[in-house]
Nucleic acid binder design. Structure first.
Length: 399
RNA sequence: GGGCGGUUACCCAAGUGGCCAAAGGGGGCUGACUGUAAAUCAGCUGGCAUUGCCUUCGGAGGUUCGAAUCCUUCACCGCCCA
């Protein structure tokens, strides 16, 4: 039960106890634990936050258990309201299907493809009848839902709470029942869905309740709020080593503990040592964070990618030099600086580009540009730096 | 179905006839500093244009010299009553 987080010691003990018992039962039956975790394809990218439960699944795999990666194509139609304080936009089945396309492939960066079952929950959820829904819903009271924090807040604020939002929990519980799950993995925001709802439903429907493995939630690059693509604070799995390294480095110092614990391979003892070192001032926060970035990049891109990624980071951000590779931009005769910035997609409007120049955020070959209307006539390539992290290689007009 | 309240920029939220491109906060961006894209401080944050113009306050109409602000109507949300 290492790395779990229940926020309640009694619950943790109970779950640990049940897990021990279940292991014995399962052994008697001559099978392995059925472990599952669901992921809603509301966006096309898995990110570092998703890897927390996925890596736990991997551990179960390594112990030989039966792991199912559920793609919540059906649940994503509603969207989990657990950690949201307003209703979530509904997405279509088409969008969900499109987003789900590469989900499994992304998850295989961690999971063993040969030992992973992939399941789409619409295959069973879409078959339920209204009568089934009545049966599922009859096990819960409105009060149970309304006392959950996310809903309670909205109730108090007199914000809308839609009936269909309650279905999410029922659907997830039914997933667990349908898969005859022994162990369900989720973040702390899934406590209600798993511990209260799924377990209750499974029992009501004649199955043994599943055991909840509850993990901490990874904060996003802002260091505070849960990582999510829609908030723009995510570190996607599908990127390149340099970008991942840089994004990890942008995480505020205060979140380093969470990152080390949730998404690195360091042992609790090693992490304690690091934290003690930071506390005493023996370790430099920057160096610790770089170690963290190396570790994370190493997990997803291999040790050989770590050095180049770190070198690129040093070059650009520590030594403030330009990166080796940058996009080309072919200039035209009479083109103005602001036009280049807008056409290269670095700003949405000329006004925005003009502001950047006014704020001394644009440099041409290292020299601050003063005049946004400057007309560039190049006879040799020059490097345009826009803001801290955008570079363009400007090329002379083609004759 | 009836009564009341609400809908403001990326988000939250002030503004109840001109001084409103619209307070404040968050987020984002830029700069200084630094230890990094951390922390802190400062500035910027509708568009086009070198002092002006255009578009925006749920939608559509209207009143007015002038509307985010008043009226009509439609849509949506919340509360209370049924």
């Amino acid at each position: 039960m290492q790395g779990t987080k229940y926020g309640d010691e009694t619950l943790k003990q109970a779950m640990a106890q049940e897990l021990r018992m279940r292991l014995l039962e399962v052994e008697k039956e001559g099978r392995k634990l059925r472990v599952y975790c669901g992921f809603d394809p509301r966006t096309s990218d898995l990110h570092l936050g998703h890897t927390v439960p996925i890596r736990k699944m991997r551990q179960f795999q390594e112990l030989g258990h039966d792991v199912t990666f559920v793609i919540g194509r059906f649940t994503s139609l509603v969207g989990d309201p657990s950690d949201k304080n307003s209703v979530r936009a509904q997405i279509s089945m088409e969008d969900a299907t499109l987003n789900a396309e590469t989900y499994a492939e992304q998850a295989f960066k961690i999971l063993d493809p040969n030992q992973t079952r992939i399941a789409y929950n619409d295959t069973w959820l879409s078959k339920l009848t209204f009568q089934d829904l009545i049966e599922l819903a009859s096990h819960f009271t409105l009060q149970q839902f309304l006392t959950r924090e996310a809903f309670r807040k909205r109730w108090k604020a007199e914000d809308p709470i839609y009936l269909h939002e309650f279905f999410y929990t029922l659907m997830q519980g039914y997933d667990a029942y349908h898969l005859k799950t022994d162990v369900q993995i989720g973040g702390t925001d899934q406590l209600f869905n798993i511990v209260t709802a799924a377990r209750k439903l499974m029992e009501a429907l004649g199955e043994k309740p599943n055991i909840a493995i509850i993990l901490g939630i990874l904060p996003g690059t802002d260091g505070v709020v849960k990582m999510s693509k829609s908030l723009g604070n995510h570190i996607p799995l599908q990127t390149d080593p340099e970008d991942m390294y840089g994004k990890v480095m942008s995480v505020p110092d205060i979140a380093m503990g969470d990152y080390f614990r949730l998404v690195t391979r360091l042992t609790p003892t090693e992490i304690d040592e690091i934290e003690a070192g930071l506390e005493s001032g023996e370790l430099h926060p920057r160096d610790v964070k770089m170690r963290m970035a190396r570790e994370i990049v190493g997990i997803y891109y291999g040790e050989e990618s770590v050095e180049p990624a770190e070198a690129a980071f040093r070059r650009v951000f520590q030594e403030r030099e330009k990166p080796e590779e940058m996009p080309d931009f072919h200039t035209r005769h009479g083109i103005k600086l602001v036009e280049i910035i807008v056409e290269a997609g670095l700003t949405k409007s000329k006004s925005e580009a003009r502001r950047l120049v006014d704020q001394r955020g644009v440099r041409l070959d290292g020299v601050v540009v003063e005049d946004p209307k400057e007309i560039l006539e190049l006879d040799e390539p020059k490097v345009l730096r826009v803001g801290k992290r955008h570079f363009l290689r400007l090329l002379p007009p083609e004759e």
